[in-house]
């Protein structure tokens, strides 16, 4: 077969397809070798197979070699993955740190912004929505930049560089983390929980008038100033009572069983869902304390307004935290099945 007849044929098209996927410095050399090897194969095939057209022979030889992208991939020295196994663990760790740092920075800037603008009611929810959108956008950018850095490192770090970065201390199995038993309970903690819940029920239902700040001692004894708003209490106390009784029943049931079970986990989910409802009512409703002006005059307005913001945000973070806890509980329950 004449080599010139191949110039515009399948072989040349094949070599170009392989070559254009290779780095410039090895392209010419590989192309020349590949051309020579294909011609060897065609020559051998011509001797072995007689009733075959030149095109059929070329198709058969090129098929045997494999698709251009696969062959080029085998020639290419660069890795065929974005981030390989040698850097993957470090990449995951760094992504975790970066996303955490972005979240922290945004929380701080949002809180500062809130203190400056002091939004009320629905504006708080708008701010929360803006926070979430900002986080998604910032997290995507941070993730992109981190990935780009690791892609570059994957292609520039040699094995020697990686050896220098690796911890050379001998690995000790005793440093392995303990297996977490999520169903095991801490009896002391649960007893303390039960006692505190009973104390809260008793205090808020029987001695609510005693819940105040000690102001001064007179001849008649300590004079107390009530702090809690009666209106707010009337709204919230029934909800708190239901929540406390549910928590009490749950803690007693778990303590009796000595371990968490599917039934108590489901009950716990119910308590948490109800907690979200209570927190949402408190977020939308009045603050649970009396206006400061009723006992301190007008001088405490700034403090009161600051406290109100802190209270509203505590409710928001309480709701977010409880939603996260519910998600974790459901995930754990699904994994255990």
């Amino acid at each position: 077969m004449k080599e010139t007849s191949l110039q515009n044929g399948l072989v040349e098209r094949y070599i170009r397809e392989v070559g254009r996927r290779l780095p410039q410095k090895q392209r010419d050399d590989v192309e020349t070798e590949l051309r020579s090897l294909i011609l060897d194969a065609l020559e051998a095939r011509g001797d072995a197979v007689v009733d075959e057209t030149p095109e059929e022979a070329q198709v058969a030889v090129l098929k045997e070699l494999g698709a251009p992208e696969e062959v080029a991939g085998r020639y290419a020295a660069a890795p065929r993955y974005v981030i390989g196994p040698r850097l993957y663990d470090a990449y995951v760790r760094v992504v975790g740190i970066v996303l955490g740092a972005v979240a922290l920075a945004l929380v701080i800037s949002t809180v500062i912004n809130l203190f400056q603008t002091q939004p009320e009611g629905i504006s708080i929810l708008v701010t929360v929505g803006e926070f979430i959108l900002q986080y998604i956008s910032a997290a995507a950018s941070a993730l992109g930049f981190t990935t780009i850095i690791f892609v570059v490192l994957e292609r520039t770090l040699s094995e020697e560089d990686l050896k220098d970065l690796k911890d050379e201390t001998e690995w000790d199995p005793r440093t392995l983390p303990h297996v977490e038993d999520h169903d095991r309970i801490q009896p002391v903690g649960m007893v303390v929980n039960i006692c505190l819940t009973i104390l809260a029920i008793v205090l808020f239902n029987l001695f609510v008038d005693r819940l105040g700040i000690v102001f001064m001692q007179t001849e008649e004894g300590w004079r107390t100033i009530p702090m809690l708003s009666e209106t707010a209490l009337k709204t919230y106390l029934p909800l708190w009572n239901i929540s406390w009784v549910m928590a009490l029943a749950l803690n007693i049931a778990v303590l009796q069983q000595r371990r968490w079970s599917t039934a108590t986990r489901i009950l716990e989910l119910g308590v948490k869902v109800f907690t979200i409802y209570v927190l949402a009512r408190m977020l939308a409703g009045p603050v649970p304390w009396l206006p400061f002006s009723s006992w301190a005059g007008d001088g405490m307005q700034i403090v009161e307004s600051l406290l109100t913001q802190v209270f509203r945000w505590a409710m928001v973070f309480g709701i977010i935290g409880t939603v996260v806890e519910i998600g974790q509980s459901i995930y754990r329950m699904i994994r255990q099945r």
Partner: peptide, 25 residues
């Protein structure tokens, strides 16, 4: 050896290797 002669030599001894694997190797 050059690529194709090596491929043939290996094949003669029962070790068939794809050309697309052998040459980059």
């Amino acid at each position: 050896q050059y690529g194709y002669s090596l491929k043939e030599r290996l094949a003669e001894q029962g070790m068939d290797i794809d050309q697309g694997t052998l040459y980059p190797l």
